[in-house]
Write a protein that binds this DNA or RNA. Structure first.
Lengths: 258, 258
DNA sequence: GCATAACTGCGTATGTTATACACAGTGATG
DNA sequence: CATCACTGTGTATAACATACGCAGTTATGC
């Protein structure tokens, strides 16, 4: 157990490569491809035709290479997906600057994450399969943590706070997007779809004992088109309110082991 | 446009069947299967072997039928997945009872949703593909809305509040579970995996400029095993704090159109 | 200079997947 | 009794991830 536990050999090769931890062996022919080119091609495909269009053979075709060539750079498709997501994240927003409130910094952080999902919606369909270990994912986490650096939250609470935010941003945009897309498959325009859904849902629950939903439908909110970030902002404000209150509380009641 | 918009024919057949809206036609042989039996068999498979084990052919085998027989009850696999999820949701918790606070009721609601995910983790891997239209999903929404019935939130805000909660519960349990499972693939026991991750992550970011993460790691929180619902509860409390504050604010500042 | 070993790319093969289609039997309705 | 809608099934298709082995390539050790 002397050294085996301390090395990073459990990391997939391609992830290590993304961290720049892969020695280039001199032997053998020069690689015609590169991890970066493969990831870029896959992102291009996903941006254009959606995540379902990202198959190993299509990515290879995009590069003019054979399917199996990709497996010299990536052990499994799953790794490629992780690297695609990491690449579109890019560098995180800067942490709380001098004089910026924790709330403002976290608000920036959350909206920056939202912007990534808006720019590359397929990201939301890549399943999370483990802790953040890719470079940009780790850096985003760092940036969030650092904005909480001046507070008296415990280290654990800081992590939980960042996790809370990140889970919310991803989750809300994911449902909102899927709902919108389901609507668009039913009707041509957004409003058409919404009103079809509203009326059909109204009919569906007509005889049922669902008064709260019926009131919501009657109020017309479902078919109504609000400003684009309405739902996102409402939830985010509630969360930031809660975090703010807790940060203030912790300032007055510091944890013993902090 | 006279009637076509107002009927529910845009709903998949199997979803209509789940609502009990499908007339039984007298013609033809008696069905040997039923939607319910198919969904049950699929759930049994998912509980036992995970969501990946749920293929149309395996579900059919479980029932002693042919693969294609399932398509007489379900138009696509996606519908089957929706119905599986709906079935394990079951009926929602009761809405706020007399004298119960909004906060307590929403807390019960969130923890009931968590319990579903704990009982059937594969649910978290079924992608959301549209608005809630299955019976239990709609009833859960209704229950959440009803707990907010006595508040002065607008109908839209009530929906956004329920959505916020639901997104959080699903999201946090989903990441926590995937992270835990990724750890378990690396090491035998939970603690082993955690400490391997901790030490490897420490080594990974050793040379990097990631001070906040390094402090978090140094504090030992990553490898530490807290009580099982620690992360879930922390985020939930922040959210409920934020909702509570907003409900109180709305009580003093009612919306004009409510 | 040359043999070797490590490496890259590729063609082929395998097993699995969802689902389209056509056909055979079935049973109530005209 | 004929019709016709319905159920179950076998076959076929196209796509998928990926294991394997071979052929060609290049720096290293002699």
């Amino acid at each position: 157990m002397a050294d085996g536990v301390h090395d990073s050999s459990w990391l997939p090769r391609s992830i290590r490569a993304a961290w720049g931890m892969e020695e280039r062996p001199g032997r053998g022919p020069k690689p015609g491809l590169s991890l970066e080119r493969i990831v870029d091609a896959a992102i291009r495909l996903a941006d254009r035709d959606g995540l379902d269009a990202v198959s190993m053979s299509r990515v290879a075709k995009e590069l003019g290479a054979s399917t199996m060539a990709l497996y010299r750079y990536v052990d499994a498709k799953d790794e490629l997906l992780q690297l695609m997501v990491d690449a579109v994240y890019g560098p995180p927003p800067s942490p709380a600057a001098n004089g910026e409130s924790v709330r403002a910094a976290l608000d920036r952080w959350a909206r920056a994450e939202l912007a990534v999902y808006r720019a590359h919606p397929w990201t939301l369909r890549v399943p999370i399969t483990g802790p953040p270990i890719t470079p940009n994912a780790v850096r985003w986490f760092e940036s969030g943590l650092r904005s909480l650096g001046e507070t008296r939250l415990t280290e654990n609470e800081k992590m939980e706070t960042v996790l809370l935010l990140s889970v919310y941003v991803r989750g809300i945009e994911s449902v909102m997007r899927e709902v919108r897309e389901a609507f668009l498959q039913t009707a041509r325009t957004d409003e058409d779809a919404m009103s079809v859904y509203e009326q059909s849902l109204a009919r569906l629950i007509e005889g049922q004992d669902l008064p709260a939903l019926q009131r919501a439908i009657a109020s017309g909110v479902i078919g109504a088109e609000d400003e684009p970030d309405e739902e996102f902002t409402f939830g985010l404000e509630r969360i930031l309110d809660g975090i703010d209150a807790y940060v203030a509380w912790r300032a007055a009641n510091p944890a013993e082991d902090s």
